[in-house]
């Protein structure tokens, strides 16, 4: 490499190269950026703008049928639709229901089991992470079998204790909690591992010092561990609030189709339903815009809160 540089006649280099080089220098980062940027523009940013536009039209996605401009009509229709409000309140139920499974219980388990020997911890680690890599559709298939009211293993076990079988996916009162439980099943081990890692990161001398001062186990958890785990707790809470309802989509789609009686539908499912079952592009796009703005607002507020309240331990 050095040879090539040296063998160039110096004067020529000093005169001819600079202009070409500065040009290239200005262009280079853009060229490197182009493939990723173009992909994201084509598949995310432009569609986002397009969704805004389509939300003012009435159209059924058939290329031959006309697109009709209807102004704010789609939005008005959606807000007047009981199904939309049901989906919205279900979304809230999903998020609230998932928080214990994705944050609280894992946090408790991680703190409670932090002093298990490393060897057995590694075994548990490998096992409880497993649901995370199982495809949601496969998980849905397995649970459908396990929860079958007639012959499913879970109901066999319930009947062993003399109770009547639960119609986990068919009973409108139970179905949403079943879906929340399945979504939680996928996340609980993963969250536990995240908390365990953060917990193992706490400087042991802090704990030891507190012990010397006669702090009880609970005091140590309350005054040292929890504050130091705060940013992890906030992070997982944020993820659950933002993505909780989204994670359940596959289960809702495969297992209940939003039913029975709309009991398990949520805002993400209703978008799919509008767009690809009833083929009303305008409605689906308007719902998408509402979702995007709502999602963005929630995310903005949560990130602000996280910035303010997360504790930086350095």
């Amino acid at each position: 490499m050095t040879d090539a540089a040296l063998s160039q006649p110096l004067p020529a280099r000093a005169v001819a190269v600079p202009s070409r080089r500065t040009n290239l220098r200005h262009l280079a980062p853009w060229l490197y950026l182009a493939p990723a940027a173009i992909t994201l523009i084509i598949w995310i940013y432009w569609p986002l703008i397009d969704a805004f536009r389509l939300s003012f039209y009435e159209w059924n996605m058939l290329p031959t049928s006309p697109m009709r401009f209807v102004g704010w009509q789609n939005y008005a229709n959606i807000f007047a639709l009981p199904k939309f409000w049901q989906a919205l309140s279900n979304t809230l139920v999903y998020v609230i229901g998932l928080l214990p499974l994705a944050v609280l219980i894992p946090l408790g388990i991680a703190i409670y089991t932090h002093d298990l020997p490393a060897r057995s911890r590694n075994v548990y680690r490998a096992i409880i992470f497993m649901p995370m890599i199982i495809a949601p559709v496969v998980a849905a298939a397995i649970w459908r079998w396990l929860l079958d009211p007639g012959h499913g293993m879970v109901n066999e076990a319930i009947s062993l204790f003399g109770y009547r079988p639960v119609r986990f996916l068919q009973d409108p009162k139970v179905a949403i909690w079943t879906i929340i439980g399945l979504t939680g099943w996928k996340l609980i081990g993963f969250s536990t591992l995240i908390f365990s890692a953060a917990n193992a990161n706490i400087n042991p001398s802090l704990i030891e010092a507190a012990r010397m001062d006669g702090a009880s186990r609970w005091q140590i958890i309350r005054d040292i561990r929890l504050p130091l785990l705060r940013s992890t707790i906030l992070f997982l809470t944020l993820m659950t609030i933002l993505l909780g309802a989204q994670w359940s989509f596959s289960y809702v789609h495969v297992l209940t189709g939003g039913g029975p009686l709309g009991a398990t539908t949520n805002i993400f499912y209703i978008l799919w339903d509008f767009g690809f079952s009833t083929m009303s592009v305008g409605w689906s796009s308007a719902a998408a815009v509402i979702l995007f703005l709502g999602f963005g607002a929630v995310a903005f507020i949560l990130f602000r809160l996280m910035d303010r309240y997360s504790f930086h331990d350095n």
């Binding site: 990723a36 940027a37 994201l40 084509i42 598949w43 995310i44 940013y45 432009w46 569609p47 986002l48 397009d50 969704a51 389509l54 996605m61 989204q246 989509f249 993400f268 978008l271 799919w272 767009g275 592009v281 689906s284 796009s285 998408a288 815009v289 979702l291 995007f292 999602f295 963005g296 995310a299």
Partner: peptide, 19 residues
């Protein structure tokens, strides 16, 4: 680029499907 994370796929699915 980081913010694309905030765009749920369901929001852009119809334009993507059309494309």
């Amino acid at each position: 680029i980081a913010l694309t994370w905030l765009v749920p796929f369901q929001v852009v699915m119809i334009p993507n499907y059309r494309l």
